[in-house]
């Protein structure tokens, strides 16, 4: 084999592949796009909240998908006033842990109280059916940081950051909800719960399901 020729051709093929990949990714729709260079989500710790015992150390979520999550320090633009924003008493903030795994009964209980639900599955799967009120937050799509930052902006008040958030994916060995929980914990959301058995369990319990792109 002519090694010089081989290396030249191999380099050309690989460079062509990289170029095609970058062009295709640039042209891809939001749901099919990837963040090209993913770096550790070394989050900037937001200002420590007054009432809640929030860890002050920089947290490093173990998340494979995202670029550095920049925290929007702007005051919240929305201040919902509904009573479902009251912290759930039995689900207290846990700043020492990124998330706590919970099961069907607790999930239903939190859902009934109007707690925010995030769906970590792919958007296409979310549209086929999701827990009513849940927002699509796929960790594998390029806009996840944008969504996380928007959520932070909505809940920039420390009191709001202590409100429970429930994250779910497909249950079983699905880790997407855990990844998203790590990411939220990284920007000081201290009361995150992972619905361990995920959407299949919700379906199995015969609970209501919404379809389409709206929560």
């Amino acid at each position: 084999m002519n090694w010089r020729k081989f290396f030249l051709e191999a380099a050309t093929l690989i460079i062509a592949a990289v170029a095609c990949a970058l062009v295709a990714n640039a042209m891809a729709s939001r749901e099919r796009k990837l963040v090209v260079v993913s770096a550790p989500a070394q989050t900037v710790a937001p200002p420590p909240p007054a009432p809640a015992p929030i860890a002050t150390t920089t947290r490093q979520p173990d998340n494979p998908t995202t670029t550095q999550a920049t925290v929007n320090r702007q005051p919240a633009t929305k201040k919902p006033t509904t009573d479902n924003r009251q912290p759930t008493t039995q689900f207290n903030p846990h700043p020492d842990k990124p998330y706590i795994e919970i099961h069907g009964y607790d999930v239903k209980n939190l859902h009934d109280k109007g707690v925010l639900f995030l769906d970590a599955r792919r958007t296409s799967v979310y549209e086929q059916g999701h827990i009513p009120g849940a927002r699509p937050f796929s960790v594998w799509e390029s806009d996840v940081d944008e969504k996380v930052n928007k959520l932070y902006a909505e809940r920039s008040d420390p009191k709001d950051q202590n409100l429970p958030i429930v994250i779910y994916c497909s249950g079983g060995d699905c880790e997407d909800s855990h990844m998203l929980a790590q990411k939220l914990w990284g920007i000081q959301f201290n009361n995150v719960y992972v619905y361990k058995d995920g959407f299949p369990d919700w379906q199995k319990r015969g609970l209501p399901i919404h379809t389409g792109s709206n929560p």
């Binding site: 690989i14 095609c20 990949a21 990714n25 990837l34 090209v36 260079v37 993913s38 494979p64």
Partner: peptide, 22 residues
């Protein structure tokens, strides 16, 4: 390692495609 996952997911299929076409 997770910083390599996304670049790999983007480039590897194109390498497969170009080699297959070749």
């Amino acid at each position: 390692p997770w910083p390599l996952i996304n670049p790999m997911a983007l480039v590897m299929p194109w390498i497969e495609l170009l080699c297959g076409l070749a």
